[in-house]
Design a protein around this nucleic acid. Structure first.
Lengths: 117, 117
DNA sequence: CGGGATCCGGTCTGATACTG
DNA sequence: CAGTATCAGACCGGATCCCG
């Protein structure tokens, strides 16, 4: 796969999205988004910080280390990329995202009243 | 679906299984297992405690409340059961379980050395 | 039986400062 | 640039006791 040199979009993820509603998660809070970012190609630390709005260096470091420890990503020459194992995770991750998109309104309805207006 | 009167098995889940290795999760630590239990039919509080080895009443209560709040389970007449939304979650949950089974040895290898012997 | 109240130790988080 | 160190506060699951 070719290296993507285009910068990752700032609005790749909606920081206002109440993603805590999603009952399906991959790793910690950020792991799923990190995998999504790396799906497009290797990226550097500071590149990853752009779409992951509001993440601190410490937390990003911790998430990256956890993913590395679990064999899902690899670090080489200052760039992070998915391992084959990490890439294989994209399948179930897509399934989870599809489910969430499909049932998003039901999830919101279930919590209706908890988020007035 | 008929009500399952047979008790849930004590060894439905392996308490020694290092399930923290699984990068895909549904809700909190227990939510996935609870959904699995209810897949077989409605169950009561004390029935659920049997396969969920070691769970305390407080934690089970909290998990059940969270699942109820999110519209995945419903409580009626002292029995918990899956809602249609909760049942629809079984698809992606199966996909996640399949991925984990398929890559379990790779996950263990990745952490090799962290668990000596 | 089905929880609620309380306490506690560990973890996670954010902010800030510092470094190779 | 790519982190590490540190500290304070929030949050977490687990244990224990209690209650209708």
């Amino acid at each position: 796969m070719a290296v993507v040199t285009a910068p990752l979009a700032k609005d790749m993820f909606d920081p206002l999205c109440p993603s805590d509603l999603n009952p399906i998660r991959v790793g910690d809070k950020w792991a799923g988004m990190i995998v999504r970012c790396l799906e497009l190609g290797p990226a550097r630390f500071s590149q990853l910080r752009v779409p992951l709005t509001g993440i601190t260096a410490k937390v990003l470091t911790k998430s990256l280390r956890a993913l590395e420890r679990d064999g899902l990503i690899r670090r080489a020459a200052g760039e992070y990329s998915l391992t084959p194992l990490g890439r294989s995770l994209l399948g179930p991750l897509d399934a989870a995202c599809a489910w969430t998109r499909e049932h998003w309104d039901e999830l919101l309805d279930a919590r209706e009243g908890l988020y007035p207006h």
